[in-house]
C-alpha cells in the first residue's frame, strides 16, 4: 500500500471517530432535559400539595389551614388540640399523595410536624400565618 493511501485511511478513521463522538455527545446532552422536567413536576407538586393542605376541610366550617393557625397559638380546632390534628391530617394527605414518611418534612416555625427528617436535595414551598412560616419540603 502506498503512503498516500495509508494517510487517506487514517484521515477517514479520524472523521468517523469525530462522527461517533458527536453522536454520543448529543445523546448525553438530551438526557439532562428529562431531569429538568422531573424537577419542574416535583416543584409544582410541592406547591399544590401545600395548597391542598391549607384548604382541606376537617370538620364543619373548619379547614386544616385554620387548624395550622390555631396550632401556632397552641389552640384548639374541631374540639381537639390543633397541633394533633395538623400532625395526623398532614401525614394522611401526604401518604395518599404517594410520599414515604422519610421523604418529606412539614414545619410550623421551627417545630417539625412530620414523623421524620430527611436529607439530600430538597424542594420547598411555604406561606406565613400568624407571623410563623409554614413549610413543606420534599427530599429527593
Amino acid at each position: 500500500m502506498k503512503k498516500g493511501q495509508t494517510e487517506i485511511i487514517g484521515f477517514m478513521v479520524i472523521i468517523l471517530l469525530l462522527f461517533f463522538g458527536l453522536v454520543f455527545y448529543f445523546r448525553f446532552a438530551n438526557s439532562a432535559d428529562s431531569d429538568l422536567t422531573g424537577e419542574a413536576e416535583l416543584n409544582l407538586e410541592v406547591s399544590n400539595l401545600l395548597n391542598v393542605i391549607k384548604k382541606q376541610t376537617i370538620c364543619e366550617d373548619e379547614t386544616l389551614g385554620d387548624a395550622i393557625e390555631a396550632c401556632v397559638g397552641d389552640g384548639f380546632a374541631c374540639d381537639e388540640k390543633a397541633c394533633d390534628i395538623v400532625e395526623r391530617e398532614v401525614s394522611e394527605i401526604v401518604a395518599l399523595n404517594g410520599w414515604e414518611e422519610d421523604e418529606y418534612m412539614f414545619y410550623i416555625g421551627e417545630e417539625l410536624y412530620s414523623p421524620n427528617t430527611c436529607t439530600g436535595n430538597t424542594l420547598a414551598d411555604d406561606y406565613t400565618v400568624g407571623g410563623m412560616s409554614v413549610r413543606l419540603l420534599i427530599c429527593y
Binding site: V52, K55, Q56, I93
Partner: peptide
C-alpha cells in the same frame, strides 16, 4: 399527576 383541592359547593367543603 399533581394534587388539587376539589371544592364541593353543596356543603362548601374542600377535599383532596
Amino acid at each position: 399527576s399533581t394534587p388539587v383541592s376539589l371544592y364541593y359547593p353543596l356543603d362548601e367543603s374542600y377535599k383532596f
